[in-house]
Design a protein around this nucleic acid. Structure first.
Lengths: 153, 153
DNA sequence: CATATACCCATTGACGCCCATATAATCCCA
DNA sequence: TGGGATTATATGGGCGTCAATGGGTATATG
C-alpha cells in the first residue's frame, strides 16, 4: 500500500518523541524513509505531514512562477519557511516541533489520520470530533456521498 | 534535503557573528560549503542569501527580462553590484556586513527563513509580520495555496 | 600599530544512536 | 489447527555527538 490510510493514536514520551505508525513509515520511499516534512494545516488546527518527495514537487511548481512577482514571494514564504523537516530515528520516532504542537493543541498523545497522499496529526479528541463533523457534513449531501462511493471508474 | 526550509532564530554575538542554521549549511555544495553570497532583497527589508552556485541561476532570471527595459538595468544593478560574498568559519558562523544589517534593521538576533533555493534573513519581529502578511494575501485566494500544497503529480 | 577577522578551545543543551522491555502480530511445525 | 516460538511495533531511558554560543588569541591588512 502506497497511501496513508487508517487512524492511530500514539504516545509522546518525555523527550517529545512519537512513533510514526509503522504503516505510514512503509509509505515513505525507501530512499528517504528517515525524513518527513510537517506543516500547519490550512483549514484545521492540525498538522499535516508527508514524505520529502512532495516538497520537491512543490518547489518545482513555485519555481515556475514569475520570479519577480509578489506571488512568488508569498508562496515561497508561506510554504518553505513554514515547512519543517524532521528526522525519523532508527525506531521510527520523530519530534514534533513545539510551535506545531501548540498550533494543534497536542500534548501527550497524537492521533494520526491517513489522508491518502499525506496524513494529519490531531490532538485525539479534536481529531475524533473532526471526523464526526466531517461525516455529518457529508451525510447532509447523501447524494454526493453515494455518488462518490458507487460511481464507476 | 537540498532546499532551504523552515525558520530559525539565531543570536548575533559581540563580534557580530551568527550561526548559519545547520540545515542550511547542509544545502550548500560540499565544495563551497564555507562561502555564501548575500544581497539586499528587492522587495522587502530583508537580506537574501544562497550558495555561490545560485548566482548563475539569478543571472539567468535577469536575462529573461527584456534587455531594454528599465527593470533589466534596475535588477542587474541592484543585485549584481550589491552582492557580497561572505565566509563561514569552522563553527558555521559568518558576519553580516553592517550595511546589510542596517538595511534589514537587524541588531541582536537574526531570523532565517528558508525559501527553497535561497533564504532570507530578517529582524525577527519584521520577519514574523511578513510571514503573516504574506499568508493573509494568499488566503484571499485560498484555492491557489491549497492547490500548491495538495495538487498531485 | 590598530582594528577587524579567522582560528582554536570551552560550555551547554538538544538530538541521534544504542540498548532494553512489553505487548501485539505472525510464523511454524508437530 | 493449536500453541509455543519468533518477529515487529510501540515505548522507555542512558549516553555520546553535534549545534549554537561565548571568549581568548593569532594573524592579516591597511
Amino acid at each position: 500500500m502506497d497511501l496513508f490510510v487508517s487512524k492511530y493514536i500514539n504516545k509522546i514520551d518525555k523527550k517529545g518523541r512519537v512513533s510514526l505508525p509503522s504503516s505510514f513509515r512503509n509509505v515513505l520511499p525507501k530512499a528517504n524513509r528517515n525524513e518527513i516534512i510537517l506543516y500547519k494545516s490550512i483549514k484545521t488546527p492540525s498538522i499535516e505531514g508527508c514524505g520529502v518527495g512532495r516538497l520537491k514537487e512543490i518547489a518545482k511548481r513555485i519555481n515556475n512562477l514569475d520570479f519577480f512577482s509578489e506571488d512568488y514571494d508569498d508562496f515561497s514564504t508561506s510554504i518553505f519557511s513554514e515547512i519543517i523537516t524532521t528526522n525519523i530515528d532508527k525506531e521510527g520516532r520523530f519530534l514534533i516541533p513545539e510551535e506545531l504542537k501548540l498550533y494543534a493543541s497536542i500534548k501527550t498523545e497524537a492521533a494520526f489520520f491517513g489522508q491518502g497522499h499525506y496524513f494529519q496529526i490531531w490532538e485525539p479528541k479534536k481529531g475524533q470530533k473532526n471526523t464526526e463533523d466531517s461525516r455529518r457534513r457529508l451525510l447532509k449531501e447523501k447524494k454526493s456521498l453515494r455518488m462518490m462511493l458507487t460511481q464507476q471508474k
